[in-house]
């Protein structure tokens, strides 16, 4: 089974719209939304949830005021200043390191596991889908990404599908790192702006660092041809396969408003035609 992870470095380059469109074209794919922090793919794919589970990860400290003698040791030890003068733990500030819990001489601190999100196995019109939702202001997004990708792989295996299409998170930090490990390839959706190019370069360096084969395509390429050329030149220099260009096309936003992929909304829109070509190259590159 092959896994293609679509990432972008910079947010808002059209990664999710592209992934949804690929899901529409693929005949044998399971789908995974690993952008757990701001998951949007479900807005187009409208998954019918079959199974829902809590995501329990890490712990969080809580001080029992009846047992606490206000000795102050925990406040001194906490590297995140998460315990205030009244010996109340700020749940958002707490990193879950357990140091206060371990050293409290009065055993006044509880350290229960925390539920920091939920995940789902669903059906969509294009195939089975694994997706998740990290709770607001929560941590452990990398662990949830790892979990949801594993679930996505299982879905593909159980259903005899040869491909997992994963929508990755923006940035280069912990969730992105978690979304790339062991992938067959990443497709970087770049945008031809100074920011888009800068961010794409960093995400190329990241895929290099973890030795994951990378491909790049430029979305809205006609907004700035100089930047498009620069992105493609950088990609070639770093041995990243250049997959093609997609023009700026309002049909992507119009399709999104209708909760459709661009192929369902207008299959001959310029954006749709460009994507079809990129998809054909992708299937060839991935050998599927």
């Amino acid at each position: 089974m092959k896994e293609l992870v679509v990432i972008s470095g910079k947010g808002g380059t059209g990664k999710t719209s592209l992934l949804a469109a690929f899901a529409c074209l693929a005949k044998n794919a399971a789908i995974c939304d690993a952008d757990v922090d701001a998951a949007d793919l479900h807005l187009i794919l409208n998954p019918q949830v079959r199974q829902r589970q809590d995501f329990v990860s890490g712990h969080s400290a809580a001080i029992d005021p009846a047992k606490c003698t206000r000795c102050g040791l925990c406040r001194e030890l906490c590297q995140w200043q998460a315990i205030d003068e009244d010996f109340v733990v700020d749940a958002i500030g707490c990193e879950g390191c357990g140091v206060c819990y371990y050293f409290c001489p009065e055993k006044a601190i509880a350290f229960p596991p925390s539920t920091c999100g939920e995940w789902f196995l669903s059906d969509t019109r294009f195939g089975p889908m694994a997706h998740a939702r990290l709770g607001l202001a929560e941590e452990n997004s990398g662990k949830l990404v790892t979990l949801i990708r594993q679930e996505g792989k299982k879905l593909a295996e159980v259903n005899g599908l040869g491909l997992l299409l994963t929508d990755g998170p923006p940035g280069i930090g912990c969730p992105v790192i978690a979304s790339m490990g062991g992938a067959s390839a990443v497709l970087i959706v770049a945008e031809p702006t100074v920011s888009g190019r800068h961010d794409m370069e960093r995400v190329v360096q990241l895929s290099d660092f973890f030795k994951i084969p990378a491909m790049v395509c430029v979305n809205k390429f006609d907004i700035n041809l100089d930047q498009t050329h620069a992105i493609e030149a950088y990609a070639r220099e770093r041995r990243v396969t250049v997959m093609g260009r997609i023009p700026f096309d309002p049909a992507f936003t119009e399709a999104m408003v209708q909760a459709q992929t661009i192929f369902e909304y207008d299959g001959i829109a310029p954006g749709a035609r460009a994507l079809k070509t990129i998809w054909n190259r992708l299937t060839w590159e991935l050998g599927i």
């Binding site: 947010g11 999710t16 922090d37 990290l134 923006p170 909760a259």
Partner: peptide, 28 residues
């Protein structure tokens, strides 16, 4: 601030006086 709603953005918002949220009028 960074995008998202998890720990990086919290680190960039916690304790500030005002948060200006930039959005676009699309479903996403």
């Amino acid at each position: 601030a960074p995008p998202g709603t998890s720990c990086p953005v919290i680190a960039a918002m916690k304790g500030v006086d005002f948060v200006l949220l930039v959005t676009e009028p699309t479903p996403f």
